[in-house]
């Protein structure tokens, strides 16, 4: 209990935390209305654009399957296993980095990880696995084990002038608490299943964002130094989030506040 109060106090310094949740509780009808918005997700435009980019720069699904040395039929399940250790990279990479490798192999200058073209193309590629369950294997090899451990460390390590970690706001103890009118989300498979629902259209930003880009948003707000996209820590965090949401069905693009 004492611990919760301490966390609440340090949070209060960044944003105002309150547990007076009923004031902002959404009705089921409201929640349903927001869920229905997924049918016409503005990010569908960006994902469609991503499909054309994949065709143009990566040879489409056939090109992607060939790059992974699998058949096109195996592609969805394979994509659902990212982040993965890839021999060509000698490290654990996200799907976006794999696409960079393929672009390079095809003689194109790879899109930057933070470019909207990469967000579009990466989202399209991940959407090929829509309906498939996240099936990351963190015990597949020592690289995956290390990536998971680094991700967990990054999630739990207190940083910044407020001494906050991701865990401060995303631990089971605080889920559902209200921070500046927003409920603290459950990132795991029983809640938002973040790794299965990002990339998503971020309504407050009017744009398509990736999971790693979303991590940066929280880092910014909680006054933690922002870690670059694609760095081992970021990929580790993605591995950690994917493990937390393992078993959830991929549904890309998501739609978030």
């Amino acid at each position: 209990m004492k611990n919760t109060i301490k966390i609440a106090l340090s949070l209060a310094l960044v944003c105002s935390l309150s547990y007076a949740s009923e004031q902002f509780a959404m009705s089921d009808a409201d929640r349903e209305m927001y869920a229905e918005m997924l049918e016409d997700n503005p990010a569908d435009i960006m994902v469609a654009n991503g499909g054309e980019l994949l065709e143009e720069f990566c040879g489409g699904e056939a090109g992607l399957a060939a790059f992974f040395k699998i058949s096109e039929d195996e592609l969805p399940a394979y994509i659902a296993g990212f982040p993965r250790y890839l021999e060509e990279f000698k490290q654990v990479v996200g799907l976006d980095q794999a696409l960079q490798g393929l672009m390079h192999k095809n003689g194109h200058k790879p899109f930057a990880l933070k470019s909207s073209d990469m967000f579009d193309m990466g989202s399209y590629a991940k959407s090929l696995a829509n309906g498939v369950k996240l099936q990351i294997d963190i015990d597949a090899n020592k690289h995956m084990k290390e990536a998971y451990a680094l991700g967990k460390l990054t999630f739990e390590q207190k940083r910044g002038s407020r001494g906050l970690s991701c865990l401060s706001c995303h631990s089971p103890q605080v889920i559902g608490g209200i921070l500046r009118t927003q409920p603290l989300p459950d990132i795991g498979s029983n809640g938002n299943a973040s790794a299965a629902t990002w990339p998503a259209y971020r309504m407050t930003k009017s744009s398509l964002r990736t999971l790693q880009r979303r991590f940066q948003g929280c880092m910014n707000n909680a006054l933690l130094a922002v870690i670059p996209l694609g760095s081992p820590e970021m990929v580790g965090l993605e591995v950690y989030f994917t493990q937390e949401a393992k078993g959830s069905e991929i549904a890309i693009p998501g739609l978030k506040r």
Binding site: E39, D40, P42, D44, I45, M46, A48, N49, E52
Partner: peptide, 26 residues
């Protein structure tokens, strides 16, 4: 042309059917 999208639901429809049309634009 890549900045907008037309969606018709359901995907497959018969003559005379009333379908939902959505237009989205960046």
């Amino acid at each position: 042309s890549r900045k907008s999208l037309i969606k018709i639901k359901p995907n497959s429809y018969k003559d005379g059917e009333i379908v939902k049309v959505s237009f989205m634009v960046m």
